[in-house]
Design a protein around this nucleic acid. Structure first.
Length: 585
RNA sequence: GCGCCCGUAGCUCAGUUGGAUAGAGCGCUAGCCUCCGGAGCUAGAGGUCGUGAGUUCGAGUCUCGCCGGGCGCGCCA
């Protein structure tokens, strides 16, 4: 239960009654009001701007409306006090029993607490990673993978029907280059001395591919023209690269439901022609000549007539080419066709996770989806993912594909663990560059957020273990704890404050899902961990805050219930972003 | 030249999708270990939210201009 939507519904119900009674005009029902936690806890537990936003529609002063609503809200069973503050905010103070009931909710639901039906009936496609199948994943791909995977998990958790998708860019010139590079390694495996020319992929990871090709084909492909082997080697090498990438993804704990091949599923099936034809029917393509870009002109620029998509009709700055001068489709054309397919599969919402280097591409894809969705109202959004800077004790790790000092995602995972990688990737907003410092992320201190949050979870577990030895024979199962008298916790503000933070979790999940910002989960977990650690330490000065007190059996049970609930929410959040919670440190 | 992203404490960053007196960590200053795990905790100092207008009951948040940083800009993907 999201308690803020709970009280928003309560206020809406009151408004309905006031309208029926003729006290307020029906127009107030159309106004969007918010119910949220006040920034300052001294203002109460729940705050609404209802009176402020309704003022215009009602034709009355905010304070008058606030008084009307306040009078009704005072009768609500969970409300202990109502205040009108500032220009007309309605602040609710909730009865302490309301909070202990939420604690019981958590113990009953366990790690499912916060699961909601917000997205019920909505089909969402999240496309992420989509690294070109030309080599192992690097750390930047890893960030996109974590972001997309966590976002998909968030959407699923909030009731959406989620498809996790990977688009394989296996149709362009890059995979031909890949095939030629692999062919060289094939010749090398058969004993030839090779040099890798500029422009081909020099990576060692193609050696095993060359060896496998040699084992499978023997010398059959040697001394043949490229046309005789390109398609064959390309297909086998792409398969090998995708196996590599799937391995990397598995090591990170990231999975996809659907892999779509640009070559096999889009181009070969004539989807590009279909998409272009669909645009042509609505007069959205034409042959024309683009203006040269202003500022830095490409040296070899000369005007050419091309097949263009009228992207400017949908908010883009220029129309976009669909065909190269040799008549083949541009990457944009096939990607557009791919998105056309996603629209036709009937999703309500499409989310693409892209690297920030594709920023300049967003507008045209948005335009394409708008053009191709026709009468549907498919929503499309791109989540851009900024760079990751790898550091070693504050010093940048020099990376170069040439010199062989390139650090792959797999190396990072092997060194610090998938859980650490996943958590750290979410400690910044995605559009902010992220520093990943090997020294810091493995440090066992408060500097390291992964450790700090894991320690909080481990501490909840260790307290339970400690309680079992201090007070043998207690039933510490969640079911039993949900049933103990929890009102003992109401006497200490610190306990109630912690419950309030836990009760915020359902709302946090919903807002993170709606905004598509999984980093909010990581920040919430950090704040919750901090609050729990503080409570623990305060128990050293204030004995009433100690959890386990041998001579106070009932109080101990109530406090253990709280500890257990903290453990559930922390574990739930960690698992959501793909991190296994620690039992001990 | 155009488009997009970023600009918040000395540093690294949050900021509840327009709410009330802008927060956290690091660093700095001053404290706290006979006591459920000090792998930590408490207090203090530190801000014209890049800047100038606008929108309104209200702007770090929305709109426009300017300044600074980054990325991108036809036949690469």
């Amino acid at each position: 239960m999201n308690l803020f939507t709970f009280f928003r519904d309560a206020i809406s119900a009151i408004l309905g009654r006031l309208v029926s009674a003729g006290t307020l005009p029906a127009t107030v029902l159309d106004t969007r009001l918010t119910v949220e936690p006040p920034r300052d806890a001294s203002h109460g537990d729940v705050s609404s701007n209802a009176a402020l936003v309704l003022s215009k529609a009602a034709g009355r002063k905010p304070r008058e409306i606030a008084e009307l609503l306040a009078a009704e809200l005072r009768g609500h069973p969970d409300v202990a006090g109502v205040e009108i503050a500032g220009p007309g905010f309605i602040n609710l103070r909730l009865h302490p029993a309301f909070w202990t009931k939420r604690l019981a909710d958590i113990l009953t639901a366990g790690e499912d607490y916060g699961t909601s039906t917000l997205g019920a009936g909505k089909r969402v496609n999240v496309e992420y990673v989509s690294a070109n199948p030309t080599g192992p994943m690097h750390v930047g791909h890893g960030r996109g993978a974590v972001l997309g995977d966590a976002l998909a998990a968030l959407l699923a958790r909030t009731g959406h029907d989620v498809t996790r998708e990977y688009y394989i860019n296996d149709a362009g010139g890059q995979v031909d280059t890949l095939a030629r590079s692999a062919y060289l390694r094939y010749r090398e495996a058969l004993g030839e001395a090779i040099t890798i020319p500029e422009g081909l992929y020099p990576g060692e990871y193609l050696k095993p591919v060359g060896a496998a090709l040699a084992a499978r084909h023997g010398r059959a492909l040697l001394d043949k023209p490229e046309a005789a082997w390109l398609a064959l080697i390309r297909a086998e090498t792409i398969a090998a690269m995708m196996a590599l990438i799937r391995d990397d993804l598995a090591a990170l704990g990231v999975r996809h439901d659907v892999f779509v091949s640009e070559r096999d599923d889009v181009v070969a099936k004539g989807k590009v022609e279909q998409a272009v034809e669909s645009l042509r029917r609505r007069d959205l393509v034409y042959r024309g000549v683009l203006e040269p870009p202003k500022g830095e002109k490409p040296d070899d620029w000369e005007p050419r007539e091309q097949l263009l998509f009228r992207a400017t009709a949908f908010g883009d700055v220029v129309d976009r080419p669909l065909q190269k001068s040799d008549g083949t489709w541009t990457y944009f054309a096939s990607d557009m066709a791919y998105h056309h397919g996603k629209v036709e599969r009937g999703f309500d919402r499409l989310i693409d996770v892209w690297g920030a280097d594709h920023k300049g591409y967003v507008k045209r894809m948005e335009a394409a989806v708008k053009a191709l969705r026709g009468d549907r109202d498919t929503q499309f959004e791109v989540k851009l993912c900024e760079l990751v800077n790898l550091l070693e004790n504050g010093e940048p790790v020099r990376m170069s594909k040439r010199s062989g000092t390139f650090v792959t995602l797999r190396e990072v995972i092997d060194r610090v663990g998938a859980g650490v990688v996943r958590f750290i990737m979410l400690t910044r907003r995605s559009e902010q560059t992220l520093d990943f410092d090997f020294a810091k992320v493995t440090e066992q201190s408060k500097d390291n957020p992964v450790f700090y949050v894991q320690y909080a979870h481990a501490r909840t577990r260790s307290v339970m273990r400690q309680a079992e030895t201090a007070l043998p024979g207690l039933d510490l199962s969640a079911a039993a704890l949900a049933g103990v008298p929890l009102d003992r916790l109401q006497s200490k503000a610190e306990f109630v404050a912690l419950i309030k933070t836990l009760a915020f979790w359902p709302r946090l999940l919903e807002s993170a899902a709606e905004t598509g910002e999984p980093h909010r989960v990581a920040f919430f977990l950090y704040d919750l961990a901090a609050q729990f650690h503080q409570l623990w330490t305060h128990g050293k000065d204030d004995h009433e805050l100690r959890i386990v007190v041998a001579e106070d059996r009932d109080g101990t049970l109530a406090r253990l219930a709280l500890v257990r609930a903290v453990g559930y929410v922390v574990a739930s959040g960690l698992r959501l972003i793909g991190v296994e919670p620690a039992e001990s440190m």
